[in-house]
Design a protein around this nucleic acid. Sequence first.
DNA 1: TTGAAAGCGCTAACAA
DNA 2: TTGTTAGCGCTTTCAA
Lengths: 332, 332
Amino acid sequence: MTITIYDVAREANVSMATVSRVVNGNQNVKPATRQKVLAVIERLDYRPNAVARGLASKKTKTVGVIIPDISNVFYAELVRGIEDIATMYRYNIILTNSDQQEDKEVQLLSTLFSKQVDGVVMMSDQVTKDMFKEMERSQVPIVLAGTIEATNSFPSVNIEYHEAAVDAANRLLQNGHKRVAFVSGSISSAINQLFKLSGYKEALEKANIEIDSDLIVGIDNTYDDGLLAWKKLRELENPPTAFFAGNDEIAIGLIHGAQDNGFRVPEDIEVISFENSKLARMVRPQLTSVVLPLYDIGAVSMRLLTKFMNKEKIDEQTVILPYRIEERDSVK
Amino acid sequence: MTITIYDVAREANVSMATVSRVVNGNQNVKPATRQKVLAVIERLDYRPNAVARGLASKKTKTVGVIIPDISNVFYAELVRGIEDIATMYRYNIILTNSDQQEDKEVQLLSTLFSKQVDGVVMMSDQVTKDMFKEMERSQVPIVLAGTIEATNSFPSVNIEYHEAAVDAANRLLQNGHKRVAFVSGSISSAINQLFKLSGYKEALEKANIEIDSDLIVGIDNTYDDGLLAWKKLRELENPPTAFFAGNDEIAIGLIHGAQDNGFRVPEDIEVISFENSKLARMVRPQLTSVVLPLYDIGAVSMRLLTKFMNKEKIDEQTVILPYRIEERDSVK
DNA sequence: TTGAAAGCGCTAACAA
DNA sequence: TTGTTAGCGCTTTCAA
C-alpha cells in the first residue's frame, strides 16, 4: 500500500538506516550507495512520512500561528509575511483564528502544543494572565508579533507605536487644529491604550491643548463604526476638525461620513490613519497614514522564531521596526 | 520530562490501554476507573501527543489548504470559512500560498501529503495536468473550492459563474448601453474564460450587440490595473460607457479612473463588479456587484471534505451555491 | 561506510 | 471491563 523506508531498503539491498541517511542528506554514505538508493526511491516513488519522522526526531517542521481573524486584511498581511519566511526555512504553518477570545487563545495554544509544533507566532490584543501561564510552560519558543506583553518575557516584534502616534497627532496639530478626535478600535487593548492613545495625549499636551474625553472614542475596527463615530462626534457642541483614526477602515468611515455631510477632506476636515493597508490608496482622498509594516512584522517574527528553534544566538529578543508616515491627501 | 501515557498508567495503576480509552472517550471503562485516571491526568497535566496518535491511528486531524495568496481579501474570506468549519469538526488547517504557480502547487500538495493531512481543500485558477496527476494519486480526499476542473473528477464547490455573468452583463445592457467593456483578471483562467467571459458574450449576442475584442481586456486583479484599464479603454475611438469588472479592486480602479476624468458614476459611466467584498461598500458610489459568497464556498467545501474523510454518504460531489446581485449605486 | 536495534508515544486488535 | 502486545514509519545511537 503505502511504501515505507523498509521497502526502499529491501529493494536497494541496504539497511533502512542507510536509506534514512540518504533521505536526510547525511554525508556518510558512499556515492555509489547513494545513487542506488536514490534510484529505488525514484522508482518506487517513496515519500517520507513526516509524522513518523516527527515522532522519532521530535521536530515536526511546523509552527503554529494564532491571530485574531484571517479575514481581516490587517492580519492576513501579517500571516503572509510569516508564511513566506516559514516556507523559506521549510516550515509549514498551522493557522488558527482566536477572534480575540481569551479562552480560545489559551485552548489554541494547547492544541498547537499537542500537535507538537516547533514554535508559535502569535498576535493578540492583550496577553492575559491565563494566556501567560499557558505560554510560560511551553516547551517551544513563542514569538509575539505586533503584540505587547507588559513584562517583556517573550520575544516580540513591534514598531514604536508611541512615537508613531505622537508623530501622527502632531501632523494634525501643525495644521492648526485645536479639536482633534481620537477614534480607535478596542481602546482597552494594550497597544491602543499604552501607545497610540498615550502618544495622542502627549502630543496634545505638548501643544497645550486640553484633552477632551468626548473626543476620545473607542469603537470596533470597522468602516461602519467609523461612519457612526463621525455622526456621534459631529453632534458635539464643539465638534472636531481633525481625526486620528486607529486604522484604515475607521479612517474611511470617518471620511465618508464627512463627505456625505458635505464637508471636504482635507479642506474642511483632516484625517490621519494608522495602518496603511491596500485600502489607503483606494479611496478619494487617498489616506495619509502611519505605515504599519504588517508583512514585515510577520516576516521578522518568523525569522526570529527560526533562530530560537535552531538555538542560534539571539542579539535582541525585542525587536522594534521603523515606521514612517505616508503622506497622501487626507491631510493638508 | 514530557509525560506520557505510560506515566499516567503507572500513577493510576492501570494499563496504558485504559488510559488511552478514557482519553478517547471509549465507553468501555468503569466509571470509577475513569475518575481515577482523569484525576491523574489532571494532576500530572498530561497532554496527548497528537503526532504519536497520528502515527498510530493514521489520522492527523489536520487538513491542508492551498490558495493563491492569503493577503488577498478574496482568499482570506474563503480561508475563514474553511477554518471555522474545520474547527467545528476538530480539525486544524495547514495554510499554504501557491501564488498561482503550478510547480508550487504540485510541490505543496506533495508536502501536505507527506505531512499526512486527512484531506485537502484547494483553490486554483487552473488545474493543470501535473497538478491533476498529483491530485489523482492522493490517498486522501481533495475538494476544489471555487475552482473548475474540466473533467469534474474531484468534488467541488462553486457558484453558477456563467449565469451570474449573463445576469451582470444584462444588468448593464438593460440600461441601454451598447459599448460594454469586460475587464477582468487573468482572462486565461478557467473560470474567467469559460464562465464569466462566456456569460458576457452570451448576453451581448442575445442583445444583438457585436462583440468588440477591443472591449475585452485581461489584466491583473488589482486596483492599479483597473485604473490603467480605464485609461486604455478611454482612448478608444468609441469608448465604452459601461464596465463589467472582474472583481472589486478592478471596479474601484475603473470608477476612480472615470471620476478623475470628470465623469460621474453611475450617471455617465456604469460599473458592475463581480465579488462583493467588504470593499464594495467602502467606496463612493458603492458597488453594485454579483456576490461571490467566498466564506460560504470555503465553509461548504470544508464540510464536504469532512463527509469524505468520515466516509459519509455524499449526495452530490459537485455543489453549486446560489448567487445574487447586490444592487448599490454604481449601476443605475 | 554500513547495519542492528532501541525507541518516539500512541492506537487497536486480541485475549483474558 | 481491563491488560498485553504488536505495530505505525521513522531517527539515532552504538557497534562493526
